[in-house]
């Protein structure tokens, strides 16, 4: 049922297709979910950054966003719950030539894997962390996550959440990330540019992407569907580059501050380790040999 009145050139192909395992489509994400939109932005960023795709690895944890690793036609790994960052750390140390991208959700990165996140940021591991924040544990049935805003209704908080939520960008900056940005799925061009910028930067880069969860978050809170969430992002978001991250916390229906908050240089883990080994071993230090199949 492909119907259109336009003349489509015979060689026209969807620019996303070379990056995805199209044989696994349609994907499992709900109608109106924004994860697919973030994948679009990521593929455009990869395309523009002209990265060698044999040297890009995607690591995901468990959850709706964790499925990205399964759909990406790259070297990808779907790890155990919360352990995407430790796996990615090992991958990066074993083969420093790889561009390692951690693509996971808020529950996986900040609840189950919260400790790993802060320590990878503290060490400044050369990882690009993309966190799709849908403000809830979506795959398991809509339980309260550490990112669920106050007063939101979830399946484990039927009278409203009473605990304050994490401010992810502030946490990332305090832990020592080199690059911190926040966008929503409405800001596709900005998000794609931000991902491109992070891919070209050395050190721990963190990008938070707010995404609708129509099935569990929006529906339970009577906030409409995915499209209503996108309209809310359009109206409520203010672009403030370099804003102090402590003032950028999220609420259920308040203003969303988006933009690039932190862009700084810090020596990364491999560099510091090498400097320390050179200093203590002197001439006896030998560069580790990396043997890859390609």
């Amino acid at each position: 049922m492909i119907e259109t009145t336009l003349d489509i050139p015979a060689d026209a192909r969807n620019p996303v297709e070379p990056f995805l395992r199209m044989e696994r489509m349609p994907h499992i994400w709900c109608a109106g979910c924004g994860i697919g939109t973030t994948v679009n932005c990521f593929t455009r960023a990869l395309l523009k950054s002209k990265a060698n795709l044999d040297k890009v690895a995607v690591v995901s944890g468990i959850g709706c966003t964790g499925r990205v690793a399964g759909y990406a036609r790259l070297d990808s790994f779907h790890t155990t719950h919360g352990r995407a960052i430790p796996f990615a750390t090992g991958l990066k140390l074993a083969n420093p030539e790889l561009q390692v991208v951690v693509y996971s959700g808020d529950g996986d990165l900040f609840a189950i894997g919260g400790n790993h996140f802060i320590h990878a940021a503290r060490r400044n591991m050369d990882l690009k962390v993309i966190c799709v924040n849908n403000m809830i544990y979506a795959m398991t049935g809509g339980q309260t996550a550490p990112t669920t805003p106050l007063e939101a209704l979830t399946s484990t908080a039927p009278y409203g959440v009473s605990e304050p939520a994490f401010n992810l960008v502030s946490l990332a900056e305090a832990a020592g990330a080199c690059y911190v940005a926040r966008w929503t799925t409405y800001h596709v061009m900005q998000l794609s540019r931000s991902m491109e910028e992070a891919l070209g930067k050395k050190g721990f880069c963190f990008i938070e992407v707010l995404s609708p969860c129509p099935t569990l978050y929006q529906r339970r809170n009577r906030m409409g569907d995915g499209l209503d969430a996108m309209k809310y992002y359009k109206e409520a978001s203010k672009i403030r580059h370099g804003a102090p991250t402590s003032e950028c916390s999220l609420s259920k229906s308040g203003e969303i501050v988006v933009g690039k908050f932190v862009d700084r240089e810090r020596p990364d883990y491999c560099e510091l380790l090498r400097a320390q080994m050179c200093q203590s071993l002197g001439e006896r230090y030998a560069e580790p040999e990396v043997v890859c199949s390609r």
């Binding site: 049922m1 119907e3 259109t4 009145t5 336009l6 050139p9 026209a12 969807n14 620019p15 996303v16 297709e17 995805l20 199209m22 489509m25 349609p26 994907h27 994400w29 109608a31 109106g32 979910c33 924004g34 994860i35 697919g36 939109t37 994948v39 679009n40 932005c41 455009r44 596709v188 061009m189 794609s192 995915g226």
Partner: peptide
């Protein structure tokens, strides 16, 4: 589901914003 269809083909600028937004990789422009 109700898929989109083209009503104003002559207005299309080929910006591919539909392709950027589509979470199901079902549409693209050029």
């Amino acid at each position: 589901y109700h898929p989109p269809h083209v009503v104003a083909a002559e207005k299309c600028s080929g910006c591919d914003l539909c392709g950027m937004y589509c979470p199901d990789f079902a549409i693209f422009g050029g």
